[in-house]
Lab assay of single mutants.
Amino acid sequence: MAAGGDHGSPDSYRSPLASRYASPEMCFVFSDRYKFRTWRQLWLWLAEAEQTLGLPITDEQIQEMKSNLENIDFKMAAEEEKRLRHDVMAHVHTFGHCCPKAAGIIHLGATSCYVGDNTDLIILRNALDLLLPKLARVISRLADFAKERASLPTLGFTHFQPAQLTTVGKRCCLWIQDLCMDLQNLKRVRDDLRFRGVKGTTGTQASFLQLFEGDDHKVEQLDKMVTEKAGFKRAFIITGQTYTRKVDIEVLSVLASLGASVHKICTDIRLLANLKEMEEPFEKQQIGSSAMPYKRNPMRSERCCSLARHLMTLVMDPLQTASVQWFERTLDDSANRRICLAEAFLTADTILNTLQNISEGLVVYPKVIERRIRQELPFMATENIIMAMVKAGGSRQDCHEKIRVLSQQAASVVKQEGGDNDLIERIQVDAYFSPIHSQLDHLLDPSSFTGRASQQVQRFLEEEVYPLLKPYESVMKVKAELCL
């Protein structure tokens, strides 16, 4: 049975990233139509530049190519590739079939990587351009969430054990800070992308030097003109047959890092959902379990974690691919890159769409948070109580021993009897502590235990987050809708 299948058929496997999760716009960027249309555009740009620099290419040939950029006979191309065992030459023939007058000058002087690699770089750039505003929107939604809850005390956790208090907004800023680093890295790697350009079979530009009869300047002009037509500021000066596969490492490393950030955020949300302090959106008709109707599973956060793990592992592909590119190139890269580049971007696209949807509907339960604080705060307040007693004339050592005994009794009630923490009640009825009984409410005010959390939130948002989001103001209103 021949390899390949009808990918629109229910009898043929289709990647869930495309069929179930990723956005239509990201799927289109990695589609065959987008790819092969870009090949034709690159052939047109090459012909236009070659004509401008004096090669015998007519206006009629150029116009014929322009008129057929979208006229792609995919069936013919597939048949040609089956016959020739070469995808680029299959599309040269297919393009030439609908451009008979231009057929002889299509791909003039070029090698397969002229269309293959340059198209990949265009796709990487455009895919990054799709991700950047999506990530900015996630940051914006979380920034709104953090600002609104900047002063809401909550129990902090280290080692997932109760620690000092923080605020809900401050905790959210930990998430935002990681995503801001990801946004900066995505922008950097996007701006650092260079075009492969017009380089020939081993990167020496020998074929173009021959076409222009040894004119170095025209060869350099050709490279520059096509690079500018493709919208790049610069091209690699040095290439082998391909652009260095280190570029793929750079791009997928940034995406993998984004995956790590999203995994951490969504894990926190899942843990908070278990504590009943916070939940992701839950639709009115949504079913959490087929057997347990009360369940409210954090399905979206779980999906993000599941896909983020996949995204983090994909960076190993370009690392290994770059390491086995012998001399000017081997074909070890080809099949692998067809999979890992598309999957990385479709996965990143999915987790950003999902995280935006989550961040637009996060639900906080202040009463649950308050109750958990009441359970733990008495123990945390013991040092403040000791200091207040010393100020009232008591002995630190005597007070410490009193607190120690009462704390152990209260802990026994919590752990052995399943009761509430009654340390404060014990202190309130103990005559030894009568000098500070009137101060206990103040000493137990949760806001006095959150330090500068709310001020940190305000400063972080104003100095770091809002300036970073400013270039994306025009796209901030787009909502994230999930079908599944």
Rank of each mutant, 00 (worst) to 15 (best):
K276L: 08
D317N: 10
S31H: 06
P435T: 06
L211F: 08
V413S: 11
Q63W: 10
C180F: 02
P16R: 10
R37F: 11
V115H: 03
G418I: 05
Q184I: 09
M26S: 02
Y365H: 10
L319F: 07
Q184K: 10
R190E: 07
A2S: 13
N68G: 10
M181D: 11
R396W: 02
C266E: 09
C113V: 11
A77T: 14
T239Y: 02
D117A: 01
F28G: 07
A22S: 15
T350Q: 10
P298T: 04
S12G: 14
I351S: 04
I176Q: 04
K477G: 10
G116S: 13
P24K: 14
A260M: 05
H97A: 10
R329Y: 00
L271T: 07
M278I: 12
Q210N: 14
K75Y: 12
L42A: 03
I287H: 00
C27K: 12
T267G: 11
G54F: 07
G4I: 15
L331P: 00
R303W: 00
V219I: 13
M316A: 08
R426E: 05
E481F: 06
A392V: 13
V226P: 06
S12K: 13
I265C: 12
D144G: 15
N353E: 14
M387H: 06
N118K: 00
I287Y: 00
K75E: 13
L444D: 04
S474R: 14
N353Y: 04
W326L: 12
F195H: 04
L255G: 02
K276H: 02
S323G: 10
S306K: 06
T450K: 07
K295L: 01
E64G: 09
G109Y: 02
L443P: 02
F160H: 05
K147Y: 12
E343I: 06
P446A: 07
I386D: 02
M292P: 03
F232L: 12
A163N: 04
Q221L: 12
D420L: 02
I373E: 03
R85T: 02
Y13T: 14
G169T: 01
L55G: 02
M89A: 06
C98E: 12
Q375E: 10
D317I: 03
Q397E: 06
A322S: 08
C180A: 09
R171S: 00
S412W: 13
D268N: 11
K101A: 11
K233A: 12
L252T: 14
R188G: 06
Q63M: 11
Q375V: 01
R337L: 04
D398T: 11
N118E: 02
Q320Y: 11
D117V: 00
S301M: 11
S112H: 04
A335S: 15
N357W: 05
F379C: 03
P471E: 14
V478T: 13
C399A: 14
A22T: 14
M76N: 10
P133I: 13
Q41T: 08
V405H: 13
L142C: 10
V413T: 13
A308Q: 05
Q177I: 13
S448G: 14
